[in-house]
């Protein structure tokens, strides 16, 4: 049963499922990085490599 389902359903639509999964991840991340409070966080964290105490 499962095998048949895999063969007849999944194979044909694997690309579709995959595309939607990716869209989910992509849009999710996009939404996430543009949240209201993101700016402060990112403007701090992007300067981490430049911290002079590191070298």
């Amino acid at each position: 049963m499962i095998k048949q389902a895999l063969q007849h359903y999944l194979f044909g639509s694997a690309s579709c499922i995959a595309m939607f999964a990716f869209l989910g991840v992509f849009l999710g991340t996009l939404f996430w990085v543009n949240r209201k409070d993101a700016k402060k966080y990112y403007s701090y964290i992007q300067n981490l490599p430049l911290d002079e105490t590191q070298d």
């Binding site: 990716f22 992509f26 991340t29 990085v33 964290i45 992007q46 300067n47």
Partner: peptide
Amino acid sequence: PKAVNKPVYSYRLSVVHFWSLVF
């Protein structure tokens, strides 16, 4: 960023970059 002494152009982009690439 170290060598040029400036933060990365867009940190947001780096986050999107990471997740899209890995996925």
